[in-house]
Nucleic acid binder design. Sequence first.
DNA 1: CACAGCTCTTGTCGCGCGTAAAAAAAAGTG
DNA 2: CACTTTTTTTTACGCGCGACAAGAGCTGTG
Lengths: 344, 344
Amino acid sequence: MSSGTRKIRTMGEFAAVSGISRPTVSKYFQDPRSVKKVTRERIETAIDKYGFRPNLFAMNQNRRLTKNIGIVVPYLADPFFAEIARNIERRCLDAGYFPMLFSSHGETSLENDIFETLRSLKPAGVLLAPLGRRSERQVVEDFCGDVPTVLFDSEIEGVGEAFVGSDNFQSIPLIVEYLCRTGEPPSFFEMPPVNPNANKRRQAYIQAMESLGHAPQVVHVHGEGWAFEEVGYREGMRVIAERKLPTDTVLCSNDRLAIGFLAAAYEKGLRVGRGQGFALRVAGHDDHPFARFTSPSLTTVAQDYAAIAERSVETLFRLLDQGINAERRETELFPGSLVMRQSA
Amino acid sequence: MSSGTRKIRTMGEFAAVSGISRPTVSKYFQDPRSVKKVTRERIETAIDKYGFRPNLFAMNQNRRLTKNIGIVVPYLADPFFAEIARNIERRCLDAGYFPMLFSSHGETSLENDIFETLRSLKPAGVLLAPLGRRSERQVVEDFCGDVPTVLFDSEIEGVGEAFVGSDNFQSIPLIVEYLCRTGEPPSFFEMPPVNPNANKRRQAYIQAMESLGHAPQVVHVHGEGWAFEEVGYREGMRVIAERKLPTDTVLCSNDRLAIGFLAAAYEKGLRVGRGQGFALRVAGHDDHPFARFTSPSLTTVAQDYAAIAERSVETLFRLLDQGINAERRETELFPGSLVMRQSA
DNA sequence: CACAGCTCTTGTCGCGCGTAAAAAAAAGTG
DNA sequence: CACTTTTTTTTACGCGCGACAAGAGCTGTG
C-alpha cells in the first residue's frame, strides 16, 4: 500500500477510486477468476495501491454460504493433530477459503460447544476429527445434518458426508508380520479405547497373529483421557515390575503410548532394541513427529498425514461443488508404511 | 431446546416470543450482567426453550469493538505453545470472549498474513507470541498500533502494550548453579537464536558461569527453523563424533533441542545421567510436556505456563477496561523452577 | 450487418443486529 | 406519598456488503 492515499473504508469507495462498479468488485472478492482478466488486474492494482480488504462481517452477513471452513481436532497438544491441522489449514488458504481451527481438548462439553460456535459461523464445510468414544453421537449427527462435514482420523459410522483415515487392517498386519519375522511375536499393549481406531487396531492385531499361527496376547491397562504418554509410562512401570509382559516384544496401540512405555523400560533398566543384548522390542503406530527422537528411536507404522489432509480437504471441496449426495457416504482409507528404527 | 417450537431466526423474533424488547435482548448478549436479574433469567429461560443464538456476523458488523480475541503462536506443532494456547483459550471463553487461534508455523509471511486477517476480524485485543527474529518488526509494530496487543513468550522491545514471559536471568542461573554444585560445570548448547529468549539464555549462562568462577563454554551449532529436535539430534551426533564437547555436562538452550541431543547421545552409546557410570549430563529449559518421557527423563527448568497464560489474558483485559495507557509499557517476568529428573 | 453471448454497470433492496435518543415503566428512597 | 434513579421500551437509522434485475458495452460469428 502506498502512503499518502487516504484510507478506503468501504467497497463502494474502493470501487469508485478504482473505476470499477461495486458489484464487480464484490464478484472479484468472492472469486477472483469470475471476472475478466483485465478487470482482475485493474482491481489487483488498486488493492496494492489502497490496501483495501472488504469487511469480513459484512461479507458473511448476507452470503448464502461463507468461505469459512471449520477444522476441529480432538486434542491439539498432540503434535500429530497439530501437524495434520497445519496441512489442512494450508490447503484451505490456498483454495481461497478461511480456515478456523478448534480443539476439543479431549472434552465432550468443549466439542459440543465448538459445534454451537461453528453453527453461528455458517461455515461452508467442516473437517472434523471427533473425540471418538467421548463424542455424543446424536450431537455430532445433528451437526453433520446442518453443515457439510468430512470426518477424518476417527470414524463414526454413518455420520458425516465422508470419512478419510488410515487403514488399520493394513497397517497393523504390516508391523505384526515384521515383528514376527524378526523375533518373538508381539503382545499388544493398549489402554481403554478413546476412539474406534484403538478397537480396530486390537482386532487387526488379533487377526494378524492368528493368521500367522500365533496366539494373540493383549495387555490391557487402565487409564483414560488423552495423556497417553503418562498412561504408557505409569502402566509400563507397573507391568514391567509385576512381570506381566507375556513376550519380549510389545506393540503399542499408538506412538504416544509407546513413548511412555519406552520411558518406563528405560527407567527399569531394560535395554530396548533388536538383536543381541537387548531385553525388549517396542513398536508403535502413527509415526508421531517425536518418534524419531525417542531413545531408542521408535519403530512404527507411518500414517500418511499429508495424504489424509489432502484427501479430506479435496473430498470436502468436491462435495461443496457437486452438492451433497446423501446416498453414497464415501470412505477412504490410506495404507500405512513400515518405519524401521532402533526400538524393534 | 425443547422440540416442537418453531425455529427462531432473528433477535426480533426471539424478543417477541420471550416478551422482552429487542434492544434489551441485544444488551443481554453483549453482557449478561448489564440487565437486571429478573430480566436476565427470563431471557435465559427463553434461550433454553428456543435455542436462539444471535447471528455472529450481524453482531460484529456494527459493533465498535467485537468480543473477538486473537491468539497467535509461532509454531503450534510445538506442544509448549499448544498447551499455553489451550490455557489462554479457556480463560477467554470464561470471560465471555471469543478466542481465535492462529499459528505462524515458523514463517514470516504467514505471521504477516495473520495480522491482515486479524485486522479484518476487528478483535478487541490480541495475545501474540511473535516469531521472534523472523518477525518483521515494522509489521508487528504497525499491527500493535491498530489493535491492543499483549506480547508473550518472546519479547520485542517497545512493541505492544505489555509483555509477559519468563525470567531467563533467574531461570538459567538456577540450573547453572545446580549443575555446578553437583558436578562438572555445564557447557551451553545452542543453535542460531530464533528469538530473544535464546540470546538472553546464552547471556544469562555466561554471567552465571562467570559469577561462579567458571569459564563459560558455548557450543554454537548450525541449524534454522523450528525443527529443534532435528537440529539437536543432527548436531548432537556431529559434536559427539568430533569430540567437540568441552565438558561432560551440557545445558541446552531449550528442551526440544535437548530432546534431540538426548537421542544423539543414546545412539552414540553415551549413558546420560548423574553419578557413577554415566558419561554425560544433559539439561534443558522450559519443561516441555514431553520432557518427563525422554530416556532418561530430562532435568530442566519449568516455565510456569499457567501463570504466563493467566497474566497475559489478565493484562489484556485490564488494558481493555482501563483504556490503553501508552505511557507505561508493562513487562512481567515469571521465575522458573528447577525440575530435577534423571538426565542431570 | 444483425445477432448472440459475455461481462460489466446502475440501481435498489434487505440481511440481522448495534446504537442512540426519548419516553415510559419499574425500583429504590425518605 | 412524591421524588429520584435505574431499567426497559419505543422508534428509528445505518453498518457494509450480497443478491438480484435490467440494461449497456464489448466481443466474436456467420
